[in-house]
């Protein structure tokens, strides 16, 4: 909708805006009570865990399978739920 008849004159007041950035809310992996652990033998590399992860911390590579960034994984368990081969198990944190 941004047209030519629009002037952006910056606001001098404080506004509730933020630019999304990795780690902006701290290491949210600290919130986790259960950790997803991957059994790479069972992984069929379907990418569903990467697609479904709500915080985008899983990467699936053809060679190595899934890796999870535990600094930001909150342990929601969605990956474990969508995994068709039972390769992801939720393990209680110590």
């Amino acid at each position: 909708m941004v047209g030519q008849d629009l002037i952006i004159e910056p606001i001098k007041y404080r506004v509730p805006l933020s630019k999304p950035k990795k780690g902006v809310a701290g290491k949210t992996g600290f919130w986790r009570t259960e950790r997803p652990v991957v059994d790479k033998e069972k992984c069929v590399k379907c990418w569903l865990c990467e697609i479904y992860c709500p915080v985008d911390v899983i990467r699936v590579e053809p060679e190595t399978g899934p890796t999870i960034d535990y600094d930001y994984c909150k342990g929601c368990g969605v990956c474990s739920n969508v995994c068709p081969s039972g390769a992801i198990t939720m393990v209680p944190e110590e």
Partner: peptide, 21 residues
């Protein structure tokens, strides 16, 4: 005069509005 505002949503640059403060 033309429309004037302080900021605008632009799909090329992600912007969170009304985030937790």
């Amino acid at each position: 005069g033309p429309r004037r505002q302080g900021y605008v949503i632009d799909g090329r640059e992600p912007l969170a509005i009304g985030n937790l403060a």
